[in-house]
Design a protein around this nucleic acid. Structure first.
Lengths: 124, 124
DNA sequence: ATTACTTTTGCAACATTGTTGCATTAAGGA
DNA sequence: TCCTTAATGCAACAATGTTGCAAAAGTAAT
């Protein structure tokens, strides 16, 4: 199972890397303009996740989005905050923000999902 | 538009209030055993949200869940942490945990969505 | 209890999102 | 160029959520 570079994969990877905001499957589909099947997009996204090229974020409305981020590749930590703008609907990574919190005993944390919503700098 | 108390609404409200964990639409549907239509559940949940009896939480996998919590009714603040157990799949409110974070300028925050995943006390 | 008003429900139909199986296509190393 | 197998397209399906409309059921007044 050696991964191959196909038209679809290359294009989708480019799209996500060059996008400032996280993209959903349907947004990607619209950008591709029929370059490949809907199913292929799902499968390519899965592969890009496996290869740690992108990461997955659940938006505050439950819509799943995909983004690449700088720190991912180097430090392999996807534990950063995301910001969801209620006006322009953009979802962005705030990679430098590290929240602190104090949990009760006996909870073992392995992942964090932290999204703030409101107005982004462009919209406020 | 004066809200009415119907069988479906009463039962669903009871279900959510008496549940320790947040419930999804499908979990509610299974509990109701055909008491009402699928569509009715969606509509009742919407009304309960409007009336601030329950609140909505997006789980880490994008599944939307509903819960009632003590502090909601009194302080009207849904800004607390949630915990999603990867083993028993439960989603619970951690109402006393208040995270701190420092955002860059120009972001206006109006809502918070913070879910930690891992193992809950029962499962760890 | 009956009536009248309006909310709520059920049903059917539809839209969106995501998954799976399988035959076909194409990437890339020999 | 050939060969192997990863990747794709298509069809079919499942799950989740939404909408319109006629019928049913709350609730307040009589």
């Amino acid at each position: 199972m050696k991964p191959r570079n196909t038209k679809a994969k290359t294009k989708i990877k480019e799209l996500i890397i060059s996008s400032y905001t996280a993209l959903s499957q349907s947004e990607i589909q619209n950008s591709l303009q029929g370059l490949c099947d809907r199913v292929t997009i799902y499968r390519v996204l899965e592969r890009l996740l496996d290869e740690d090229i992108i990461h997955k974020i659940v938006n505050t409305d439950g819509v799943i989005k995909f983004a690449s981020c700088q720190s991912c590749s180097s430090e392999h930590s996807h534990n950063h905050i995301h910001f969801s703008c209620q006006k322009c609907k953009s979802l962005t990574c705030l990679e430098d923000v590290e929240p602190t919190y104090k949990l009760p005993n006996n909870y073992k944390v392995s992942e964090m999902n932290f999204t703030l919503s409101g107005l982004c700098p462009q919209c406020s």
